[in-house]
Every structure is written in C-alpha cells, then in structure tokens.
Computed example of a mutant assay.
Amino acid sequence: MSAIHPAEKSASRMARLAGLSYALYTAAGLYITFGPIPSFSRLADQGAETETLGFLFRTGLLAEVLLYTFVIVSAAAMYVLLRSVSQGGALIAAFCRLIEGAMGATFIIFKYAAFAAVMNPELTPAFSGEERVSLMLLLRDVTSSALYFLLIPMAFGGVIFFALFFRSRYIPRWLSGWGMFTYFIVGTLAASIVLYPPLEQHVMLFFLPGALFEWVLASWLIFAGVNTQRLKPVAD
C-alpha cells in the first residue's frame, strides 16, 4: 500500500488541478460571451465613453488569455492522469488541446491589432477613416469566424480524453459518456459552420450544453476526484 499511496496522491492532485482549470476557463468563457465587453462598432464611435469601453475590452482580452492558459494547464493535468491508460492516446489528446491554445493565442493577437487600430489612429496615419474601419472589420471577422477552426482540434482532443476516462472508469461512465457526446457535438457543429457559414445563426444554442458539462465535470474533479482504486501504474 505504501508504494501505491504516492501514485494515488499525485492522481488526486492532477484531477483537482484539471477540475480547477476547467472551472476557471469556463468562467472566463462565460465572461467573454455574456460580459460587458463592447463590440468593435462601439469602440469605433470614438465617443466620450471610449476610455471606459477600452478598459472593458481589455478585460475581455485578459479573460481570453486566462482561458487558453487554463485550457493548456487542464490538458497537461489530464495527460498526466490518463497516460497510464494509453500514453499515445493521452498525448494526442493533449496535443490537440495545445493546438487549440496556440490558435487561440493567434486570434488574441489579431483581435488586439484591430483594437489598437481603433483606439490609436496614429498607428495607421496613411489610412483614411473608412480604410481604418475596414481594416478593423476585417480583423474582427477573421477572429470571430476562425474560432470555429479552433473548436475542431479542441473537440477531437476532448473526445479522446473522455474515451480514456470511459475506459479507465476513473470517473463515472455516465460523465465520461456525456463528455464524449458533448465534444463530438461541438466538433460536428464547428465543422458544419466552417463548411456552411449561414448555419451559425441557427445552431449557436447547441454550444451552451457544453458549458454545463464543463461545470459538472469541474465540480466532480474538484470535490470527488478520481477513483484511485482503478489507477494503473505508468509504463516505463
């Protein structure tokens, strides 16, 4: 038992770290979606509220940085937890989530570039007002539309992670099955929107159950942890 105890303790820590990361990046995602973040159109008005709106927009950028940071932290924790089940599968899943984080960081840079073009006209002195607005709208559309490309590797990695959870029974199989189904739906919807952009306005509500699943999973991992009786030794 003394030889098993350190592995159980490490698995419990990794499970809680993954759960906390899920909770934090889901909270950041909800703030980005429903928080008081102004649109680029409001920023472009250059009214008296520009400074306040600029601050609120920066909070959205910070939330996105936190979101993708904790996506990667959660992926690392889940890799450590699940590598004993299938090191190859856990590595592929973690790498998919790393791709998600890298793409997210790229989109943040594009979004900040659009924000800078709106807030600091002196950065583009050769542009007329209309040209500056066109540049801002282009960068805005790139970041908003490209989000669906990011969701595809995220979904692929999520399905693999929860297939490994289902196989190992570290968490209840109903929760693992819910995770596989959730990420499969997210990936399918994202690919459908990439192929048929007009679908976006009809299927957005189907993304919301994903946030519910992530809250339930986060709560389970933080408070219940994993079934340490089913832990497997890591292969050398």
Results as ranks from 00 to 15, higher is better:
residue 125 P to S: 14
residue 154 M to Y: 14
residue 53 L to N: 11
residue 226 V to D: 02
residue 175 L to A: 11
residue 99 I to R: 01
residue 202 H to D: 13
residue 115 F to I: 02
residue 71 V to T: 09
residue 164 L to A: 07
residue 96 C to R: 01
residue 232 K to N: 02
residue 143 T to I: 02
residue 13 R to S: 12
residue 52 T to I: 08
residue 37 I to E: 06
residue 204 M to P: 00
residue 34 F to L: 13
residue 36 P to E: 10
residue 86 S to Q: 02
residue 193 I to D: 09
residue 207 F to W: 09
residue 147 L to H: 10
residue 108 I to F: 09
residue 57 F to M: 04
residue 65 V to N: 05
residue 83 R to D: 04
residue 156 F to K: 00
residue 176 S to V: 09
residue 228 T to K: 09
residue 108 I to H: 06
residue 149 F to M: 01
residue 145 S to F: 11
residue 163 A to Y: 14
residue 105 A to M: 13
residue 222 I to R: 02
residue 226 V to M: 05
residue 136 M to Q: 08
residue 74 S to I: 01
residue 222 I to V: 15
residue 191 A to G: 13
residue 212 L to A: 15
residue 227 N to D: 15
residue 123 L to A: 12
residue 128 S to C: 08
residue 23 A to T: 03
residue 179 G to C: 10
residue 155 A to N: 08
residue 160 I to Q: 05
residue 19 G to I: 07
residue 31 Y to D: 01
residue 102 A to N: 00
residue 164 L to S: 03
residue 172 P to N: 07
residue 204 M to Q: 13
residue 108 I to S: 12
residue 190 A to M: 00
residue 48 A to C: 01
residue 19 G to Q: 10
residue 88 G to I: 01
residue 130 E to H: 04
residue 169 R to L: 07
residue 193 I to E: 07
residue 61 L to R: 03
residue 3 A to E: 14
residue 101 G to M: 08
residue 160 I to P: 07
residue 117 A to G: 13
residue 41 S to R: 13
residue 80 V to H: 09
residue 144 S to A: 14
residue 108 I to K: 01
residue 153 P to W: 06
residue 206 F to A: 15
residue 125 P to D: 14
residue 223 F to E: 02
residue 178 W to D: 02
residue 127 F to Q: 14
residue 40 F to N: 08
residue 84 S to P: 01
residue 29 G to R: 03
residue 139 L to N: 09
residue 186 V to C: 03
residue 204 M to N: 10
residue 133 V to H: 08
residue 99 I to E: 05
residue 212 L to Y: 10
residue 206 F to H: 11
residue 57 F to K: 04
residue 11 A to F: 03
residue 210 G to T: 04
residue 155 A to W: 06
residue 2 S to P: 01
residue 154 M to A: 09
residue 63 A to D: 03
residue 30 L to C: 02
residue 114 A to S: 08
residue 126 A to F: 15
residue 26 T to Y: 04
residue 208 L to S: 08
residue 77 A to F: 11
residue 107 F to G: 00
residue 13 R to Q: 12
residue 184 F to Y: 10
residue 47 G to H: 07
residue 58 R to N: 10
residue 113 A to N: 03
residue 152 I to K: 02
residue 116 A to W: 07
residue 181 F to L: 15
residue 89 G to H: 05
residue 94 A to C: 15
residue 109 I to K: 00
residue 21 S to W: 06
residue 139 L to Y: 09
residue 95 F to V: 13
residue 60 G to A: 04
residue 121 P to S: 14
residue 97 R to L: 14
residue 106 T to V: 14
residue 110 F to N: 04
residue 103 M to L: 12
residue 59 T to Y: 05
residue 94 A to F: 12
